[in-house]
């Protein structure tokens, strides 16, 4: 059974008197441990699709299941609780809380889960070591480079061991070398720890680092193919 199952998913945004069809007829299955990119031009529906999978938004039609369970809930609170326990997020940029240190940012979801301080510290230490962030625990986001910030964001997304990590254009504000380093790091985590990643991008350099490329166009699936990603930098 697939980790994520989308059946006939559609999303329509009302825009004045018109309707914007952001997604239509999406049937998709993504398995555990996959390393998938949603590719496609601007406006093709990448963000919308990630938001639906991440339970940030509800589809207009169709169903989304994670681990065979219908996602989300009725109330904002239930949806937030679902996200907290099942989904990790990495956003484009400025996605850390500026008044919290790197370590505090990373342990934020654990804190929301009311996990004791000692356990949080251990987990953050472990992640920071794995992500090459050791020694930066007490830095504020403003005192970190863009790549370091995104690595802290990865640490935060991974902290609570979610079923899947969703990253909407995580490299959009990074230079190409840093972008590639970040992607390779994510893939290493995918390979070593089996974390499922879904990210979006329209940057070919980034796209070809994915194992599975799902192309979107005008809100529909255009293609879906697996590739053996480049291994060397």
């Amino acid at each position: 059974m697939s980790l994520i199952q989308l059946n006939n998913v559609g999303k329509i945004y009302p825009l004045g008197s018109q309707q914007v069809i952001a997604l239509a007829d999406i049937d998709l299955e993504i398995g555990a441990g996959e390393f998938t990119v949603f590719a496609g031009p601007s406006g093709s529906g990448k963000t919308t699709l990630l938001n639906l999978i991440g339970c940030l938004d509800r589809p207009t039609s169709g169903s989304i299941r994670i681990d065979g369970r219908e996602t989300g809930g009725r109330t904002a609170r239930e949806m937030a609780d679902f996200r907290l326990h099942h989904i990790g997020f990495i956003f484009q940029s400025y996605n850390l809380v500026p008044v919290l240190t790197a370590a505090e940012n990373a342990e934020f979801t654990l804190m929301l889960q009311k996990i004791p301080k000692a356990a949080r510290r251990r987990r953050v230490e472990e992640l920071f070591a794995a992500l090459g962030l050791a020694g930066l625990e007490d830095r504020r986001p403003n005192d970190l480079s863009g790549g370091q910030q995104q690595r802290v964001a990865i640490a935060r997304a991974m902290a609570a061991d979610p079923r899947v990590i969703l990253a909407d254009e995580p490299t959009a504000n990074l230079d190409s070398q840093t972008s590639e380093e970040l992607l390779r790091l994510m893939r290493r985590l995918n390979e070593e720890q089996g974390t499922t990643f879904i990210f979006s991008s329209h940057d070919p350099q980034v796209i070809h680092l994915a194992r599975r490329v799902i192309r979107l166009k005008d809100g529909r699936l255009e293609s879906d193919h697996r590739q053996s990603p480049k291994t060397a930098a």
């Binding site: 991440g54 940030l56 904002a76 609170r77 937030a80 609780d81 996200r83 907290l84 326990h85 989904i87 997020f89 956003f91 400025y94 996605n95 809380v97 500026p98 934020f108 979801t109 929301l112 889960q113 935060r156």
Partner: peptide
């Protein structure tokens, strides 16, 4: 935007 991020991470409205 920051509240958006915190809520996406799972912070509840309350």
């Amino acid at each position: 935007r920051e509240f958006g991020i915190l809520m996406a991470l799972g912070m509840k409205p309350g």
